[in-house]
Nucleic acid binder design. Structure first.
Lengths: 136, 136, 136, 136
DNA sequence: GTGGTCTAGACCACA
DNA sequence: GTGGTCTAGACCACA
């Protein structure tokens, strides 16, 4: 089953953590199109959260087109659709990358270390192909 | 000259945007060690901000060791030093990576595309490609 | 209960005084890991301060890893972790020592008196005397 | 001759640095009662400072009774006198110690490390006796 | 309710 | 002139 985990102390707000993990589960295909998610209340109870927090996360995922709410039945993984134009995607990628890279360069990581860390994390997140790119 | 730009409506708080851009300018050597930054009030006026907002950004950059404040004289790019412990750097790297990756994964980029984009941008920022680090 | 006291006229800025006292309470275990602190607004009211002043102090303690802020819930004593690099810790130790020693040397204490006073106060603060660190 | 050194980048304001060093020189007897100090302008030139900064430092040292200004002749080391009552000295010592110790304990230094650092620094500052306390 | 950000504006400390 | 601190007060984000 789909398992969610949340840490209240972290820098990232709880509802964000839920969003991130659902996105990830969808990206990994741990959750497939049409799969149902736990109900807001059920998940809230499981994670010992205010149900508003869960509802907020679901709402954003619906807005983004990742989930689909079927009134009275529950919330499901939606068929994938693309929201942003190519140039908008590029713009957002660039901006996120700039913020990320200057932050970690400030932390004194080398380009090589950063690339390795990113590759590794991507593997973890997506369980990705990369099996033959091990050499680097 | 060093140019800063800020969008008040955005998701990212203004003082964060300033921090991001100063870090970036330092990472790309657009700002070099010893360079002076615009004064708190001057920058505030330029960006049509309250001076406290600028001061907050500068203060955080000072804490991180990126800038150095000389009371009565101004704020300058500091000599690079390592402020954080290995575990804290790791923690911050992970955190920054999480934020970055969950953002771009939503944008529907593949792991491979992300890795390439990161490698390319790192080259641009650090100029670390062909010139085998000849000392500067 | 945890009691804080602040003198607005003093040489030390108010937010520094708050930081000092929270650190002290943590160092002496008057505040233990997980303990909640008074809310920003509540403490501000108690001390007849603007809430921003309290927030500033808390924010710095969060950055130092002493406190942990849980958005929407409150501020808590964080699990101890090491935030700074060896060189940064040294730097801060030296700086703090300089300030301390030049202050007390002006007061005409002899080195021996200072060393004794420090040793004694450390014992009080850490309770590190006889009980060979039995685990707690 | 009496040598002063000043670093503009440091956390401590320049005029404070001057005060500290003069105090120290007097404590070490590097400067003896009756010795003359460089004139405000001379010192300002030497250290490449605004003369107001030097004047401010001298003024505070005069106020504290460390120096003595003889109009038209210059500034001299004053005969030592005590300004504060015993209880006031104790109060100031305790407060400075509390701030110092909780700060360095926060940095994760052990009591032993702190005591050693203090002893060592005191030796350096005062060139003190301590020759036979080497064992620890 | 709790923390975080921002403005407008005052006043201080330092060089 | 330059940075630092503080207040009063608004508004937002999160749980």
């Amino acid at each position: 089953m789909f398992e969610l985990q949340v840490t209240p102390g972290g820098n990232r707000p709880i509802y964000r953590q839920i969003i991130d993990q659902v996105r990830q589960a969808v990206a990994t295909s741990e959750l497939a199109v049409g799969d149902g998610l736990p109900s807001v209340r059920q998940l809230a109870e499981e994670l010992v959260l205010n149900h508003n927090t869960v509802a907020k996360a679901y709402a954003e995922l619906v807005r983004e087109g990742v989930l689909e709410s079927q009134h009275g039945r529950g919330v499901f993984v939606a068929k994938r659709r693309r929201v942003f134009s190519a140039s908008e995607r590029k713009r957002r990628l660039d901006q996120a990358m700039n913020v990320f890279l200057s932050e970690v360069l400030t932390l004194d990581y080398t380009p090589q270390q950063i690339e390795e860390a990113v590759a590794k994390r991507l593997d973890q997140m997506t369980g990705s192909k990369a099996e033959e790119s091990e050499g680097d």
